[in-house]
Each structure stands twice: as structure tokens, then as C-alpha cells.
Amino acid sequence: MTIPVFELLRPKTLAEASELLLKHGDDARLIAGGTTLVILMKQRTVYYPYLIDLQGISGLDHITADGEGLRIGAMATQRAVETSLLVRRSFPALADAFGKIGNVRVRTTATVGGNLAHADYRLDPPPVLLILGADLVLSSPKQTRTVPIKDFYRGLYETALEPGEILAEVRVPPAPEGSRTLYLKYSSLSANDWPCLGVAALLKGNAKRCDELRLGVGGLAEKPLLIEGLELARNETITDSLLDEIARLVDEQISPISDLRGSEWYKREMARVFVKRAICALAEEDPHL
């Protein structure tokens, strides 16, 4: 469990980091918190002669808010998001999702960018960012572009990042007035484990009348998914039959991978249970009822 000799490159700017990525191509990899990359390199499953360290680039770990919403720098630690008053006040479900990652030792070291870019199919934060309609800012020497998070994930460990591109920032627009969000993480083995699946829900309205519903799920396909077609719930009363209909919709869109934390059958069952639980919890929580 050691890493073969490699060179650690320490750029001072994003542009410099991108140049290095382009220069070394497949021989180089960005390293942020290193929590995932170092394990893989120690197992000698992957090897890169050059690691490009993002730690030395200033201005990448901010958490700020303005009228356009929240901005989180890619190098902000997961723990910083979890404990940020700003995030907890405006997007409690997001703070909660970051706070449910692995354990506190991982969260203190690992970064927001490292998590999102890793593109594991079970990550906790993406479902919440999906329902919040977050945008990801991707930086390269040529251009800086903004990609909606739902277009960022392409497949298993596959993202929209082009060669030389670096995930620089996450932008979360203000949530719809009067909406509430929730993230349910379900671990089927030890309580400390990766999720079997995660469900994020956003509800505007209440049990009597749903103005808007959004659902994001993790662990239920090769990539995190934003559930489509939820307009059917608009202006409806949240009844058992509506919940069944929503669950059916979810079931049609997911394609769970059988793994150590659950078979496809089990994950489909759990998707139904946790989607319903998330919606019911939000519906019941309405302070105006």
C-alpha cells in the first residue's frame, strides 16, 4: 500500500493548473483532498506520474451568498459546507447531505469539487444539488463555462469535464419561495456506510396542495438523477394514489446497479419507500397546516 514515485505539481492559479493538465494529458490528475485518489493510488489500481495539487490556488474555498444565490468554491471542504451557517440557514438539506458523507475525518479533508468530480453513482450531495438546480462552473484557459449539474453527469464515473477543465465553483440559485427541501440517506449495512441510495426532495405547498415537487436520487442508476415528469403532482392533493403514481414514475426512470448494498430489486423497493417518506415528511412539516 504505497504509491510509486510521482511528481507533485503545485500551480498557483487555475489557468496554470489547466495548462499542466493539458501538457501532461493522461499522465496527470488533479488532486484536491486526496481522500479518494490516494486510496486508489495506494492500491496501485491507478497511477499518475504527475499530480496537480489544487491546494495552493487561492480563492477556491469560499462559501458566499448574494441575491443570485450561494457560491461554493470547489476546494471548500465538505465539513465547511456542513457547518456553514450560511448554508444551514438557506439550504439546510445541502448542509445535511454534506454532513452525512462517510465520517468526520473524511469530511474534514475531502472537498466539494473532489466529491462532485469523482462521479461515483452513490454520492450524497448531487441529489440535493439536482433539485436545487445548481450550476457547476468549469474553468479552462480557453473559457469558463457553466453547466447545469444535471448535464454534468454522463455515466458511471463520467462527467462533462473536457481535457484541461477544472471544476471551480458550485452555484446554487435561491430555492423557490416557500419551498422546503429534505435529504434522506439510507445505508443498508453499517450506519456509517456509503448510501444504498439517497433521495432529495423539494416541495412547495403542503399535503392539501402541492405547488411544486422536485426529486433527485443517488445510487439508483449509473449517475445521480433528477426525476422528470413531476408536473403531474402540481396542484394535486398528496394522497396515497398520487404517491403511488410518483413512485411509479421514479421506478421507470431509475436503473439500479446490484451491488454489496442491495440488489436491483431491493433498491427499487427502497426507492419507492424513501421517495414516499421524503414527500410525506415535507408535506407534514408545513408550518401553515
Binding site: 465520517n103 453499517s190 450506519a191 456509503w194 454489496l260
Partner: peptide
């Protein structure tokens, strides 16, 4: 062995 590391082989945590 499919779960030959502590990333995948789970042991009880304080939360269990």
C-alpha cells in the same frame, strides 16, 4: 473477494 477492504466490508460503528 468482492469486499476485501474496509471501504466495503462494514463493521459496527458507534451509530450501530
Amino acid at each position: 473477494l468482492l469486499n476485501g477492504s474496509l471501504l466495503d466490508y462494514q463493521i459496527p460503528s458507534i451509530k450501530d
